[in-house]
Structure formats: C-alpha cells, structure tokens
C-alpha cells in the first residue's frame, strides 16, 4: 500500500490549469523532494493531495484511503509555507501546537496536551517558546512551531512546503536532524524544496515539476559541481528571466 497514490491529478484555480495531469506514487518510508521553479505548481499539487484545494479531475489516495473523511488524518502531518496571519488575537505556541492534535475524528484535544505539545517543541529545540505569543516570534521560530504542530500527532506521512525558505543555517540543520529521525522511524516524507542543499543525504527520490507537469522523476539531480554540464537541469530558487519580446538588446557603447 502506497502512502500516496495520485493518478492524473488536474487542478484548476481561477480558471487557470495549475496542475496538469500529475501521477505520483510514493511507497511508505520514502523521502521525496518536490522541486521546480516558482509557479511550477508544486505547492498547489501538494495542497490538492491534502484536500486543501479541490481536484478538477483525477484521484488521490492517502494511506490507502480515497481523499475524504475516510483518510486516517491523525497519521497525516502538514507544514504550510508560513504561519497564517490570522486576525491578530494573541495565540501562544502551545495553542498552535495543540491545534495539531485535532483531526477529522477528534474535535477536542487530549488531557495530556501540554506535555505532548512541549515534547514536540523540544524535538525542534524550542520548548522555551511554549507560552510565547507566535505573533512576537521571528520567522524561523514560527516555522519551528508549525513543524511541531505537524509532528505532535506523530504522522506516518509528513508533507512540508518549503520548510527552509528564509531560515538561518543552524535552524535548517535542526530540521534536517528532525527529518532524519522521522525517516529512521519509517515516516514517509514529501518535501517541497527550492534547493536540495542540506537535505541531500536524506532524499531518496526527486520529482521535478515544470508548468504543472512532471519533467523528472528519479534520483535527485546532482546539486553541485555540474551546473555547467550541457544536460544539467538547472534547479535554482529563481526562474530564468523572460527575454524581452522586442525592443533593443542590451548594448554597450564606448564613447571616445
């Protein structure tokens, strides 16, 4: 039984086809990196896998169950790109992490919520933030709280959307350590990345999206040293700039 079984997934947002026929089967325990330029549809694809955005067509099975109420949601963890900027009511890290204990079949958190939330924060080295307002935290601290919210339910499938964008190096290392620990316990991980970077030793497989389609599925493309090679698939945080359609080319003039 695959952790994720997505067949011919199409997603249309605002009348535009964002994901155009993606197939993805992820066996349990695999660590998959989803790569691609900005706007290649990887975030939308992942959100459609989790039922956050509706599928235009195609089918998705998570942990063996078709997307919907039947999915064992308590075993699925999701880390969005950044903390939602909800209405400004003060919220502590504890409350955010405890909300991760709720799912389709549990509408109230368990009694030992504080201990479990603190343990999840401790796994990311930020247990001292437990009673701090998330609104006052730095981006990296918020990101750790979001990961703790996904880990607190001890997921067997973890989906992360660019967990390291805008994060300092020590924090990135914390994530890699945490992720390595999860992989060792058999957790399936799907992680959206711009650069494989520090995750390289963990990644089993890389799937590259371009214009909403899979253009590469296999071993992770080499990260360094071969950028100049002719067949190199240039994976970088930024998209190549569009060449101007008309108008003058860049010229250099030397005036005497």
């Amino acid at each position: 039984m695959n952790a994720i079984d997505a067949t011919d997934v199409h997603v249309t947002l605002g009348g535009q086809a964002i994901v155009r026929g993606v197939d993805l089967a992820v066996p349990p325990g695999q660590v998959v990196a989803l790569l691609g330029a900005n706007g290649s549809g990887k975030s939308t694809f992942v959100r459609s896998l989790l039922g956050v955005v509706p599928l235009a067509s195609g089918s998705v099975r998570l942990l063996g169950e078709p997307l919907g109420r039947g999915v064992p949601w308590q075993r699925v963890g999701y880390v969005p790109q950044r903390m939602s900027a909800a209405g400004g009511v003060p919220t502590t890290a504890l409350e955010v992490v405890v909300s991760g204990m709720l799912h389709g079949r549990r509408l109230r958190p368990p009694r030992d919520r504080r201990a479990r939330a603190t343990a999840a924060l401790a796994a990311l080295g930020v247990e001292d933030l437990v009673d701090r307002r998330v609104q006052e935290m730095s981006g990296g601290q918020q990101q750790r709280v979001l990961i703790a919210r996904a880990l607190v339910r001890e997921p067997s499938l973890l989906v992360l959307d660019e967990p390291t964008s805008g994060i300092d190096l020590p924090t990135q290392d914390t994530f890699v350590t945490a992720l390595a620990r999860l992989r060792d316990t058999g957790t399936t991980v799907v992680v959206i990345l711009h650069e494989i970077g520090p995750f390289a030793p963990l990644i089993d497989r890389a799937v590259v999206l371009r214009h909403g389609r899979v253009v590469h599925d296999g071993p992770p493309p080499p990260a360094r040293g071969e950028h100049g090679h002719a067949e190199h698939d240039h994976l970088h945080p930024h998209a190549d700039p569009e060449p101007p359609l008309d108008g003058p080319d860049l010229t250099l003039e030397v005036t005497p």
Partner: peptide, 17 residues
Amino acid sequence: WTLFAVSHDEEFARASG
C-alpha cells in the same frame, strides 16, 4: 479548540480532515 483551529489556520484544518 476546533473553532480555534479552523479560525486560526483554515488550510491546516482542511489538511487535518
């Protein structure tokens, strides 16, 4: 807690079923 989870982060709440 449920009302908070949905009000705080609707996307995450959806992804939690």
